[in-house]
Measured scan of single mutants.
Amino acid sequence: AVSDRLIGRKGVVMEAISPQNSGLVKVDGETWRATSGTVLDVGEEVSVKAIEGVKLVVEKLE
């Protein structure tokens, strides 16, 4: 699937994400809805860990 190529890629949070609410991330110039187990603020760099349906699962870049 086209989304599989995104796993491991870096992105930037465009709309804040929390465990309760999905947000938006931009990866390779495309905007995706994303979820995370932690709070991520706009502008934070993330990496794509998995894909669930049409949402990316991301975590903060260390």
Rank of each mutant, 00 (worst) to 15 (best):
A1G: 07
A1S: 11
A1W: 05
V2P: 15
V2N: 10
V2T: 13
V2Y: 03
V2I: 15
V2W: 04
V2D: 14
V2E: 15
V2L: 13
S3Y: 05
S3W: 04
S3T: 14
S3L: 10
D4I: 14
D4C: 10
D4R: 04
D4H: 15
D4V: 13
D4M: 10
D4Y: 03
D4G: 08
R5L: 15
R5G: 10
R5I: 09
R5W: 15
R5T: 15
R5Y: 15
L6V: 06
L6P: 04
L6E: 02
L6D: 02
L6H: 03
L6T: 03
L6W: 08
L6Q: 03
I7D: 02
I7P: 03
I7K: 05
I7G: 02
I7N: 03
I7C: 04
G8R: 04
G8M: 03
G8N: 06
G8D: 03
R9E: 05
R9V: 04
R9L: 15
R9G: 04
R9N: 05
K10Y: 10
K10L: 07
K10W: 11
K10T: 08
K10S: 06
K10E: 06
G11R: 00
G11W: 01
G11D: 01
G11T: 02
G11F: 01
G11P: 01
G11H: 00
V12F: 15
V12M: 10
V12H: 08
V12P: 02
V12A: 06
V12T: 09
V12Q: 08
V12D: 05
V13L: 03
V13P: 00
V13A: 03
V13I: 06
V13T: 05
V13C: 04
M14G: 03
M14N: 05
M14H: 06
M14L: 13
M14K: 07
E15H: 09
E15P: 00
E15C: 12
E15W: 14
E15T: 12
E15K: 12
E15A: 15
A16C: 07
A16W: 14
A16V: 09
A16P: 09
A16S: 09
A16Y: 13
I17T: 04
I17D: 01
I17Y: 02
I17Q: 01
S18T: 15
S18C: 07
S18N: 12
S18R: 14
S18W: 09
S18K: 10
S18L: 06
S18A: 11
S18G: 09
P19A: 09
P19R: 05
P19Q: 08
P19K: 07
P19L: 06
P19I: 08
P19W: 08
Q20V: 09
Q20K: 09
Q20S: 12
Q20D: 13
Q20M: 11
Q20H: 11
Q20P: 14
Q20N: 10
Q20I: 14
Q20L: 14
N21R: 14
N21Q: 12
N21H: 11
N21F: 13
N21L: 14
N21I: 13
N21S: 12
S22E: 13
S22K: 05
S22T: 08
S22I: 12
S22W: 15
S22M: 14
S22Y: 15
G23C: 02
G23H: 01
G23K: 01
G23M: 03
G23E: 00
L24N: 04
L24A: 09
L24E: 05
L24P: 01
L24Y: 12
L24G: 04
L24T: 10
L24W: 15
V25E: 00
V25N: 01
V25L: 02
V25H: 00
V25A: 08
V25P: 00
V25W: 01
K26P: 00
K26G: 07
K26A: 12
K26D: 07
K26Q: 11
K26S: 08
V27N: 00
V27S: 02
V27W: 02
V27Y: 02
V27T: 03
V27A: 03
D28S: 06
D28K: 05
D28F: 07
D28L: 08
D28N: 09
G29M: 11
G29I: 07
G29K: 07
G29S: 11
G29F: 10
G29A: 10
E30H: 08
E30I: 07
E30K: 06
E30D: 08
E30S: 05
T31Q: 06
T31V: 10
T31K: 09
T31E: 13
W32F: 07
W32M: 04
W32E: 01
W32R: 03
W32C: 03
W32Q: 03
R33K: 12
R33H: 07
R33W: 12
R33I: 06
R33M: 06
R33C: 04
R33S: 10
R33F: 12
R33Y: 13
R33L: 09
R33E: 07
A34R: 00
A34K: 00
A34T: 02
A34L: 00
A34P: 00
T35A: 10
T35F: 09
T35N: 08
T35K: 10
T35Q: 09
T35V: 13
T35R: 12
T35G: 07
T35I: 12
S36W: 02
S36R: 01
S36Q: 01
S36G: 05
S36E: 01
S36P: 02
S36Y: 02
S36F: 02
S36M: 01
G37H: 15
G37A: 12
G37W: 15
G37D: 11
G37I: 11
G37R: 13
G37S: 09
T38I: 10
T38G: 14
T38A: 13
T38L: 14
T38Q: 12
T38E: 11
V39N: 10
V39A: 13
V39E: 07
V39D: 11
V39L: 13
L40S: 03
L40D: 01
L40Y: 04
L40R: 02
L40H: 09
D41V: 11
D41R: 15
D41Y: 15
D41K: 15
V42P: 09
V42M: 07
V42W: 05
V42Y: 06
V42Q: 08
V42L: 10
V42I: 11
G43N: 12
G43D: 09
G43H: 08
G43F: 08
G43A: 07
G43E: 07
E44Q: 13
E44R: 06
E44A: 12
E44P: 00
E44D: 12
E44I: 13
E45A: 12
E45L: 14
E45I: 12
E45Q: 12
E45C: 07
V46Q: 00
V46K: 00
V46C: 06
V46G: 02
V46W: 00
V46D: 00
S47E: 10
S47V: 14
S47W: 15
S47N: 13
S47T: 13
S47Q: 11
V48D: 00
V48Y: 00
V48I: 10
V48P: 01
V48Q: 00
V48R: 00
V48C: 04
V48W: 00
K49I: 10
K49F: 13
K49G: 03
K49V: 13
K49A: 07
K49M: 12
K49Y: 14
A50Y: 09
A50H: 06
A50W: 08
A50F: 06
I51F: 08
I51K: 04
I51W: 09
I51R: 07
I51D: 02
E52F: 09
E52H: 11
G53P: 03
G53E: 05
G53C: 04
G53Q: 04
V54I: 10
V54L: 13
V54R: 05
V54P: 08
V54N: 09
K55M: 12
K55H: 13
K55A: 14
K55E: 11
K55D: 13
L56Y: 03
L56S: 01
L56N: 00
L56F: 03
L56D: 01
L56Q: 00
L56T: 02
L56G: 01
V57W: 14
V57R: 13
V57S: 05
V57K: 06
V57P: 00
V58I: 03
V58K: 00
V58N: 01
V58E: 00
V58P: 00
V58A: 02
V58M: 03
E59T: 11
E59P: 00
E59Y: 15
E59K: 06
E59H: 10
E59R: 09
E59I: 12
K60W: 04
K60Q: 05
K60G: 06
K60L: 07
K60E: 03
K60H: 06
K60D: 03
K60F: 04
K60V: 05
K60N: 04
K60M: 04
L61F: 11
L61K: 06
L61H: 08
L61C: 05
L61D: 08
L61P: 05
L61W: 10
L61N: 08
E62F: 15
E62T: 14
E62H: 15
E62K: 14
E62Q: 14
E62W: 15
E62A: 15
